[in-house]
């Protein structure tokens, strides 16, 4: 049975200026140990998806429809305190800016120990300390014992992110949701952090949802890829199939507009226009105004079908 299953999830934000349909009907599933890449541009709804799973959608936002099945339970039907326990123990999260995830006035050591003792009250200080150092060494933080006494601002971006990862994996979660974890890091550090995440996921058999706007980063460690656009998934399947042979015009457009390292591209073909406003979505396919293949069929939102080994929503495949 899949560890996580999202079924027809709709998350809307009810604001003064209108209803923002941030997530508008998405489905995917995740097995244990699987790494899913959720890729899309800003406004596509990928972060909101992550927050929905974590149960961190606050008013004026609300999950209006759908189900989230996690480890056999429907998260949307659990009470707040159970959800909180699940969130700390079984589903962990890391975000883009390690600066804001760490308390600037506590040492690294005290933060980790606090987190440990919150979920394992029987653990005494000495044992918690040992476990914390162990975890820091595991994530490759140099001079871990010394760093236990350091404050976040004394660490570099890469080191901070390692600490954040350590804290996320402390309680051996079943699922880790990482929202742009390497976007703020230098490219050489990014490579190290990606390697770390891949190794840890394997060691702990954690499932990982890797949210990013960077297709290249996604292609490095993910097994499956879901491409999001304006609140919906437009293409979803195995990474190697999807990225070597993209079929949805948006995915293709995205790949064509990226400069590549391998050889000098003569032209970058940009996707014209911009993503539609989430409070004013067009009728029919959301991508039709920017799509080279658009025609009258596209006035009806395309049904999701399975084509060439992946799920795709497009009339023209």
């Amino acid at each position: 049975m899949a560890l996580l299953q999202l079924h027809n999830l709709h998350t809307y934000f009810f604001t003064e200026t209108g209803i923002v349909k941030a997530v508008n009907g998405i489905n995917f599933s995740l097995e244990r140990g699987e790494i899913l890449g959720l890729v899309g541009e800003s406004g596509a709804g990928k972060s909101v998806t992550g927050f929905s799973i974590l149960g961190l959608i606050d008013p004026p936002g609300r999950i209006v429809e759908g189900d989230i099945f996690f480890n056999g339970k429907n998260l949307l039907q659990t009470d707040a305190s159970t959800y909180r326990t699940i969130r700390g123990n079984q589903i962990a999260s890391i975000f883009q800016d390690p600066q804001t995830s760490l308390d600037p006035v506590m040492t690294i050591g005290s933060q980790i120990i606090e987190s440990l003792q919150a979920h394992h009250p029987h653990l005494d200080k000495k044992a918690a300390w040992r476990r914390a150092v162990e975890m820091l060494e595991h994530v490759g933080l140099p001079a871990a014992k010394k760093r236990m006494h350091a404050y976040p601002h004394q660490l570099s971006g890469g080191m901070k992110q390692r600490v954040v990862i350590a804290m996320a994996l402390l309680n051996n979660p079943l699922l880790l949701i990482a929202d742009e974890p390497t976007t703020a890091l230098d490219v050489t550090i990014q490579a190290q952090i990606l390697y770390l995440m891949q190794t840890l996921v394997k060691d702990f058999n954690t499932s990982l949802i890797f949210i990013s706007h960077d297709l290249s980063v996604i292609s490095q460690i993910c097994n499956t890829v879901a491409v999001m656009y304006a609140g919906r998934i437009v293409e979803y399947g195995d990474k190697s199939i999807l990225l070597s042979d993209p079929k949805h015009p948006y995915t293709k457009g995205l790949i064509a507009s990226l400069p590549t390292l391998e050889k000098s591209k003569k032209h970058l073909t940009p996707i014209p226009g911009t993503m539609p406003s989430l409070s004013n979505l067009p009728r029919g396919c959301y991508f039709k105004d920017r799509c080279p293949l658009a025609d009258s069929q596209c006035d009806h939102y395309p049904e999701e079908r399975i084509v060439a080994g992946r799920r795709i929503s497009c009339h023209h495949i």
């Binding site: 490219v187 490579a191 960077d214 290249s216 292609s219 460690i221 790949i255």
Partner: peptide, 12 residues
């Protein structure tokens, strides 16, 4: 150069 991820390389 070795650290830059692309769609086709394997930097990890």
């Amino acid at each position: 150069f070795a650290s830059v991820p692309t769609l086709h390389n394997h930097i990890v």
